[in-house]
Design a protein around this nucleic acid. Sequence first.
DNA 1: TCATTGCCGAGACTAAGAGTCTCGTCAAGT
DNA 2: ACTTGACGAGACTCTTAGTCTCGGCAATGA
Lengths: 208, 208
Amino acid sequence: MQTGSGDQAARRPHTGRRRNEAARRAILDVVVDLIGRDDDAPVTIDTIAAAAGVGKQTIYRWWPSKGAVLLEAMTERADLDIPPPDTGTLAGDLETFLRATFHLAGQATMARLLRKVMVEAQLDPQMGEATRSFLARRRSALRGLFERAAERGETASGTDPDLLVDQAFGVLWYRILVGHAPLTEASATELAGALTAQAVRRAPGEPG
Amino acid sequence: MQTGSGDQAARRPHTGRRRNEAARRAILDVVVDLIGRDDDAPVTIDTIAAAAGVGKQTIYRWWPSKGAVLLEAMTERADLDIPPPDTGTLAGDLETFLRATFHLAGQATMARLLRKVMVEAQLDPQMGEATRSFLARRRSALRGLFERAAERGETASGTDPDLLVDQAFGVLWYRILVGHAPLTEASATELAGALTAQAVRRAPGEPG
DNA sequence: TCATTGCCGAGACTAAGAGTCTCGTCAAGT
DNA sequence: ACTTGACGAGACTCTTAGTCTCGGCAATGA
């Protein structure tokens, strides 16, 4: 997500008062705090601004929409907390990655944040694009695990890594949005095992 | 979704003007028509009422919210168009079911309808419950295929049908909501093959 | 046939929330 | 000191869901 109108800095040197980084942090932190509360307090621009001790215009100076603020709060945490693992085997990599992912996304606050971001992505095309781009990074991280396994000769040819990736993130998002089943780390492990087998499985007659 | 206040009929015989079934049909049809249009015309209660030639109150007399109308329009089509198949093998059943499901959900109008319903489900707890209940029916239909295969002794013990089901619908919803990849029938077939193998796979040492 | 009941279309109205605009203030550069 | 632009505050517009009210009309029962 673009952070404000920094492009005019290219034309002339900056003068005047500088942006308040503390306000930026307060806004992002307040979003997570408000969403995390048990009472279903409304997370509106007004409540965010009030709780952060900030004017509404300060929010819109830094982000193009409310959804963009939510997305950045989410992105900060997701990109930080789930680095791609390297255990040496596909099974190990997958289990590590999926357990960490399910653990993070399964926390109540994060789950609610994800839901809200996905809603905004459906409502506003610009948010849709930004969200798609974030999710592409996550998919790419997971696909990398399969590709590395392929380079090691660990997987069968002809398996479609994109489908494997969508099966994994599909379960995650489907459960978060529908809420019929929790995102447990046990299910992450089970899923990792299934996807490993799916990637490794040989076509009939293919040498192993 | 409950259809209006029919419960007072239990107390005394109905008198007065009856509900207009034509208006009900017009409303549901107009919703699909509006959503299907290429121009992203707003699908609001006002535009629905106007296009259906109906007063807004008539909509709210029959449905508790706008989301409920969308959900019913969706439900009508989904329950109708995807009967559980019975080809005799898990592989055949799965492929038939998933191809039909992906085909229906992959149509532009249906996909947009699904997106809107999912958004409403996130925004309104009552809609969340109603949507969850619809999706539970779809999951149950798919899980039935696995359970029948298990009764035939076709699948391995210890595979979790709920995870298999969530992988299938997960891919569907993830792709619909994120929009990074289309829902092709080819991918349905590939997914059916993968899930079949997952269900049939034997644990090491388990007799086949 | 005629009164009662309750749905009908129409549209005014309320409430909530996203995003804009303005104002007086304050801080960073020149 | 002066200029520039971010700051908090809050009034304002706009959209949209949902409610309320009205006169009209259709089905029932006496």
